[in-house]
Simulated assay, not measured.
Amino acid sequence: MDGAEPLGERMARDLHLDEAFEEVMEKRGRADMPPEKELLIWTLILAGTVVLSKTDLPAQALSEVGGDA
Rank of each mutant, 00 (worst) to 15 (best):
A61Q: 04
G29W: 03
S53Y: 08
P6F: 13
V65K: 15
A47T: 11
W42R: 08
R13L: 15
E9P: 02
L46A: 15
H16C: 01
E38W: 06
L15Y: 04
I45H: 15
M25L: 09
K37S: 02
W42K: 03
E23T: 03
R28N: 06
T55A: 07
A4F: 01
L52W: 04
D18T: 07
P35A: 02
W42M: 09
A61K: 10
M33F: 04
H16F: 01
D32R: 15
Q60H: 12
L40K: 14
E19S: 13
L44F: 13
L62R: 02
L62H: 06
L46I: 14
R13E: 14
T49N: 09
V65Y: 09
R28P: 00
E5D: 06
V24W: 12
D32Q: 11
L44Q: 15
E9D: 10
T49G: 15
D32Y: 12
E22D: 11
E38Y: 11
R10G: 00
R28G: 09
G48Y: 02
D56S: 15
T49V: 11
R13Q: 15
E22A: 13
H16Q: 14
K54N: 13
L40W: 10
V50T: 06
E22S: 08
L7S: 12
A31R: 04
A47S: 02
L17W: 11
I41M: 12
E5F: 07
G67E: 05
A69R: 14
L62I: 03
G66H: 04
R13I: 05
E38R: 05
A69V: 12
E64H: 09
H16G: 03
L57D: 01
A4T: 06
E64M: 13
M11L: 06
P58C: 07
G67C: 14
D14R: 00
V65M: 10
R28V: 04
S53F: 13
V50M: 09
D14P: 06
A61C: 07
R10H: 11
G67N: 14
K37Q: 11
S53I: 09
A12Y: 02
L40E: 13
I41Q: 04
E9K: 04
T43C: 08
D68F: 06
D68W: 05
K54V: 00
D2R: 07
I41T: 14
E64F: 05
M11G: 04
V50D: 01
V24E: 13
L39K: 08
M1T: 02
F21Q: 09
I41C: 08
